[in-house]
Design a protein around this nucleic acid. Structure first.
Length: 269
DNA sequence: AAATTCTCCTGAAGGC
DNA sequence: TGCCTTCAGGAGAATT
């Protein structure tokens, strides 16, 4: 499940291999992703990838005549491989660069490959997104304004891309633990001081994970490509029933906004 | 407007 | 061993 740190790591991993390189062809083996994949061969062959960047969990491959927008969904991954590498099951899309290719693998097909000839930031998928969590625009004050008069659980609020992008279930859970805030607490009933701590915690867990992802052996030229987080560093996510690492109380879980949510009943209020 | 529910899809895990 | 059921999960769409 690619979270923001993994998408960022993917972005950094593939950029050196395709930025400034000319697309020599494309193969769409299965166009049935979240939305139908457009005819990439016709659209991209002969064009040069000018820049690779990330916005939220979207990867943007900028060309002179438009931008390819890629989302990895729940199970997607991108790798740089020899173009002749036989495709495995669920290898849906190849962007060819001479002897190499950028290959999209996505078993659950929740991912997306979209094309826009206009400013990608105005694309319907990107236009309404909130600030990047690691940007200056995201802080306690901003979160406090978002939380005002909102009765939704704080966990739902920070996982909503309109509030802030890239905070998935793992990092929302971990950040709320670090901030000592119960995931189900009504957003409007949390003090500005505690929201300061929450914003800081979100930045902390994401920055740490990105740092780990960047320093971990991730070779986009070969296999590898494991999750960008480390189970032994998690305080609550995936630890239901296990003792809290701080106080020893068993970690509890409950459904919040259709998502499993783990928290420490003693440390989080 | 805000909140909630439904939906997509497959691999993994659990039950027997 | 193997078949069947259940479930997770990002985020858009539909619904209340």
């Amino acid at each position: 499940m690619p979270e923001l740190p993994e998408v960022e790591t993917t972005c950094r991993g593939i950029a050196p291999h395709i930025q400034g390189h000319r697309v020599s062809g494309a193969i769409v083996r299965d166009a049935r992703l979240r939305w139908p994949v457009p005819d990439l061969a016709t659209r991209l062959t002969g064009h040069i990838v000018r820049h690779v960047e990330r916005r939220a969990k979207y990867l943007l491959l900028r060309f002179d005549h438009g931008t390819l927008i890629i989302h990895l969904g729940m199970s997607g991954s991108l790798r740089i491989l020899p173009a002749a590498t036989p495709p495995r099951r669920h290898d849906h899309v190849d962007l060819l660069f001479g002897a190499r290719c950028l290959r999209l693998h996505d078993p659950r097909r929740f991912g997306a490959v979209l094309w826009t000839a206009d400013d990608p930031m105005r694309h319907p998928r990107l236009a309404e997104l909130g600030p990047e969590p690691l940007s200056e625009g995201f802080d306690g004050g901003y979160l406090h304004r978002c939380a005002a008069r909102r009765r939704a659980p704080i966990k739902s609020l920070i996982m909503d891309g309109h509030t802030v992008v890239g905070v998935g279930n793992i990092y929302a859970s971990e950040a709320l633990f670090l901030a000592g805030i119960h995931p189900a607490r009504a957003s409007q009933r949390i003090s500005a001081a505690r929201l300061d701590r929450l914003a800081a915690a979100v930045k902390q867990v994401l920055a740490h994970a990105i740092e780990r992802g960047g320093t971990t052996l991730r070779d986009f030229l070969n296999e590898s490509g494991e999750p960008g987080y480390f189970a032994q560093e998690l305080f609550v996510y995936g630890r239901a029933g296990e003792p809290c690492k701080v106080c020893g109380t068993p970690i509890a879980t409950r459904q919040i906004g259709q998502r499993a949510s783990a928290y420490c009943p003693h440390c989080q209020h």
